[in-house]
Each structure stands twice: as structure tokens, then as C-alpha cells.
Design a protein around this nucleic acid. Structure first.
Lengths: 245, 245
DNA sequence: CGCACACTTGAACCCCCTCAACCCAAGTGG
DNA sequence: CCACTTGGGTTGAGGGGGTTCAAGTGTGCG
């Protein structure tokens, strides 16, 4: 199933002491549940790892032996049908936690879509910490609830929205930074390729491309490069995404 | 938004002491996390309630003041677009727990599709119990994980499966009881109407009806009545649901 | 009986998919 | 330096799966 041998990709792990102190995504991640002191207990069971584009590090169906916390980069989470049809259930970036699963095995596969850094936690060791730090379990429940809410929103998108509405929804929900306050520019980075956007939205890459072109022609967006979008009319896109118009 | 006044539907609640002892769905519900002794603490904050067909008891967006545990009957969980398009995100039956949500408010609405009995737990009181009984929190995390897994499976269905595959998936995942061991009959009850099945599968009711008719013509199923299906060829339906054929 | 509701079936349409050609930028290597 | 390749993206033409619209069946019930 996997394009990589199950063991080999974890060989080059590092275990520097207490790297969490300087971790940029600490506030957003699971780790925010612990204070600096207790964090060392968590760091002690974590193994840091770098992945490069295309590496699959979670295989759907495999025993869920590990949890993961992404520290940088973006990974796609996906499910496959036997004939190759793919559904991306989400993208995970810095601060996101992976591996919440029933004991049967991982419910999805995960692949780095670019350079990725992450922390790996052996399941057994994390479960022990969970017993010791109830606030950690609270945090996981919080995370699971948030994921449930976005999953339900995605079901609405996949089941009932048009292609146009799906692409608009995708654009307005992507994280964005507004540079310059005097002349605000609403910029969105797209680390994933069109095919991934399509597999996320239940469309084909051609349809995604066509919708991008239409939005450009209508002056709703601009695309300085393939992996970058300037949103010119967020209000209008928001309304379209919500099913109005 | 709601077709019912927010307060009125909770007027006729009962608070009999310790009804949990005889609760038929106790093993399957949240309550399985507590032993008979501790159960009284839970029962003390629960209010029992009966609902009839069509009653909406959770409104998307409203503050999530309560949790619910269904004891009998079936409810549909759904999200709406402004123009009336509906996506059913799931059906909840006896033993299911509702109300896991971020603080913003409920992420979906809930409506009884027939007579329903349920327990209502005020959010604040349940949160207090959560602190006292960590195994209750573990159980909620377990429940949330299971829901996440089914949500991801549903995204695959909505995003990538054909109408035929969707209806097959629906049929084989519905709870069924096999009566008679000598001549096993694989019977599925469908408490919901075709329109609800359609809104669950991201299709129209006509398409659902056509697929039912095709399966009947192909001798894969029989429909003794509108709300009852006999599965004649489960293996074949399983394969179709998995994306083979 | 007659009405409402659920379901079925047919015919026409359309949104999105499929297939194909083409563009463009970034390597790569002789 | 240019020829060639590769990966990602765009655009067009045609077809099809599912929707839309519409008519009709069956059934429970006041």
C-alpha cells in the first residue's frame, strides 16, 4: 500500500532535549495544555522528524501506533478507493494534531505535500501521559470537537454546494494574512496543487481551474503565481460560499 | 429559524429517580462509563423527554446549553443553506450522544423523524461531572473519535462515490438484524423517508428511488414496505459500496 | 370519499466530467 | 547556449450521470 517501507522513514529522527521551549506552534498545538514544566515529560516521549514532498507517513488501515504533531509544512489527509479515486479529508499544518483514531487503525493516510517537520509520539507512551495529565485529555477532546465541526461543514460542501460555491468556500476558509493596513491586501497561500484542491472539494482539477479563471475574469481574485491568491472581493466570495446569490 | 419556541418544548419533562437502572441503551451510551453507583450522579442532572415526529430540538448556531442522549427513536442531524438545501450529517438512534460542539454554538440542527425519547443534560452540570469522573471524559473522546471516523468515511462517499455506490454504502451500513438462522433473512429498517436518505447521500430523492428500483430489478434487495429492506446479496452490495465493480 | 404524503417512473436538460491539446516555468544535460 | 523533459496549469469540445420537472401510483386517515 505505502510507497515507503513501514520502518525506514523513521530512522533519521532526532531527540534533542526540550526543543519545545522554542517551538513556534506550541500555543496552537496539543502542547498548549501543558505548562513549561510538564512539557518536558511530553518532550521526553517525542521524536522530531523531517519529511520531504511526497512522503507518506500514515497509511490508512495500519495499526495506529503513533500520534503526530505538525510543527511546520503542510500534509494532506486522504482516503482512497481501490480504483484510485481520492478524497482529501483535510490539510494539516503547523500546530495540528494527527492520529485520533479508533483502535482498529488509522482512518486515513497522510502525505507531506512539501517539506514537513513533525513530532511523533508513540501511542502507548502518550496514553500514559494522558492518565497523568487530565488537561491533556481535555485538549484532545477540544481538538476532536473542532475537527468534527469542520468535518460537518465539509459534508455540507460536498453534498450540497455547487462547484462555484465549493471553490469560493475553499478560498475564504484558507488561512490568510492581510499585509499593509493602508492598502489592505488579502493574500492566501496555496501550498497544495490544483489536483489536491479538487480531491478536497470533490471536483476535478479542470473544474477547479475553470472556477479560478472565472473568479479572475470577474475581478474577485488575482493569482500572481500558482500557489498564491489575492482575494479582491472577500465579502462577495463569503456570500457565494454561504450559498447566497 | 426554529419551527418551535425555544423554551416550550422542554416543559413536559420528567425527573423520576434513577430511571437509568432499567435503561435499555445504557451499555451503548455515554453512561457505560459509569458504574451503577456513580450513575445516580448523572441521573440527578438528567431530564427525560419525549418528542414527536418533526420536532426540532437542536438549532444550528444556538448556544450549546445542553447535551443529549437518545434512548429510543431516530433523529436526523442536519445543516441548511439559506435557500433550503439540506445536508444530513448523520442519524442518531438509541445510545447516541449529541451536543459535542465548540462553545460558539451547535454545529447542526436535530429533528425527531418519529417518536423519540431522550435525556437532556444541562451543559454546565455535565461539565462539572466531567471534572469529577475522568472516565466520562475518556468516553466522550472515544465517542468523538468514532464520529470523526464515520464523518471521514462520509466525506469519501459524498466527494467521490457514484449514486449507485452511495445507496449501496447506505444500505450496508444501516443496522440490520438477521432473523432465522436456517434461512437467514438480512433485514434493514429505514425509519427515514427517501428525501432524508437523499439529503444524507447528497442526492435527490428521485435518484435514490431509481437506485432502489435498480437493485430490486437486479435481485440485490427486496422492499416489503417503504421503510423496510431485505438485503438479498450483501456481499455484492458491500463490494459496490467499497468502489469495486 | 377525498386529501395528504410518500414513492415511482419518464423525459428533457445541464452541470460537471472526460479527453485532448496546449502553455509555461524549471530543471537537466550535452 | 539550446534541446528536451517533466510537472503543473489552462482551455476547449463533447458526452453522461444526476437533476429537474412532471405525471402517476399507492396508501393511510380524517
Amino acid at each position: 500500500m505505502s510507497m515507503h517501507q513501514p520502518e525506514s522513514i523513521w530512522l533519521a529522527e532526532s531527540r534533542e532535549i526540550a526543543p519545545c521551549i522554542s517551538c513556534k506552534v506550541r500555543q496552537r498545538s496539543v502542547c498548549s495544555a501543558l505548562d513549561t514544566g510538564d512539557l518536558n515529560r511530553l518532550a521526553a516521549v517525542a521524536a522530531r522528524r523531517s519529511l520531504s514532498k511526497g512522503q507518506v507517513f500514515i497509511d490508512e488501515g495500519e495499526p495506529a501506533n503513533d500520534f503526530f504533531s505538525i510543527t511546520s509544512g503542510t500534509v494532506k489527509l486522504f482516503k482512497l478507493l481501490p480504483d484510485g479515486r481520492q478524497q482529501i479529508t483535510g490539510f494539516a499544518t503547523g500546530g495540528d494534531f494527527l492520529g485520533l483514531a479508533v483502535s482498529d487503525g488509522y482512518a486515513f493516510s497522510a502525505e507531506a505535500i512539501g517539506p514537513v517537520r513533525l513530532c511523533r509520539f508513540p501511542r502507548s507512551k502518550l496514553l500514559m501521559l494522558l492518565a497523568a495529565f487530565p488537561q491533556l485529555e481535555q485538549r484532545l477532546l477540544q481538538i476532536a470537537c473542532n475537527e468534527l465541526v469542520t468535518a460537518q461543514e465539509q459534508m455540507l460542501l460536498l453534498g450540497r454546494k455547487t462547484a462555484r460555491e465549493r471553490v469560493a468556500s475553499f478560498l475564504v476558509t484558507q488561512p490568510h494574512d492581510t499585509v499593509s493596513l493602508r492598502h489592505p491586501i488579502d493574500r492566501v497561500a496555496l501550498p497544495m496543487i490544483r489536483a489536491d484542491i479538487a480531491d478536497y472539494l470533490g471536483l476535478t482539477l479542470e473544474t477547479v481551474s475553470r472556477m479560478f479563471s472565472r473568479f479572475k475574469a470577474e475581478k474577485r481574485i488575482e493569482t500572481p503565481s500558482n500557489d498564491e491568491v489575492i482575494i479582491l472581493d472577500r465579502l462577495w466570495l463569503d456570500a457565494l460560499a454561504a450559498g447566497l446569490h
